[in-house]
Amino acid sequence: MLKSGREHSTIPNHVILMTLAFIAFMPIAILFMNAFKTTAEIGRNPLGMPSEWHYENFTEAWEVGRYGTILRNSVVITGGTIVGTLILAGSGAYALARLKLRGGDLLTFYFLVGTSVPAQLFIVPLFIMWRNFGLINTQLGLIIIYCGLSSPFATYLLRSYMVSLPEEFMEAARVDGATNWHIFRHIIMPLSWPGFVTAALVVGLSSWNEFLFAVTFLTDPSLKPISTGLFAFQSRYSRDWGLTNAGAVIMILPIIILFLILQRRFVEGLTQGGLKA
């Protein structure tokens, strides 16, 4: 009784929390609503609900913004990056976690701090190197870069996952004469799939959203992913808010849907660095 009497009311909490929710959510709601307005209505009613829901912005964005092409480009680049990174980081993490490598600790440390080498230090020489290799304006070139950028984090994440797996399975398999490959393929990978899913989500989100390398290494409009494609679109139709908002909605809709389904994993993956500390 005494305890509950001393408990604080949670109403003030909810008032402030709702204000914060309003700050987070209203701008997104306005972005969505304006995607369904005509230019004339945005002029009359810039922040409210659309009086009539128009879908023309989406069809027009699809045609003049070539959204079919840039969405396909984004899917290719993001998909390629996820597959490439998971192969590189998955096998690398296995070596670091389970195969005794000389200097393995040092490499693990590299993959921890490797993510903090600033892109600004290497983007210009990388550009020149990629020019010499003929990889500028190729999606493969950008996928390789993204794999390099995201694999340290993914390796670290997967390594900590694999280290925590129980030793007994692997010992038993080894006694039965299983090879490294067999253990990796049939024991480690099936057991660490949640780690792979988390890594895939984080890597996928960051390559879907990435801007700096995309704007530098892919200048051909027919190769651009959605981030720089939308940027070019914004610069060209900067006054046509309905059109550019529709373009933005097309970019974030898949992210929001995926987030609502796999919220826990997204949050876990994106806050991983912080929680480890």
């Binding site: 914060l20 997104i28 939308l230 929001i256 997204f266 994106l270």
Partner: peptide, 17 residues
Amino acid sequence: LLYFIPYMFASVINTQI
């Protein structure tokens, strides 16, 4: 959930908004 959504957005989206 609501607080976290803007963190998922690309820079081009935040700037558009």
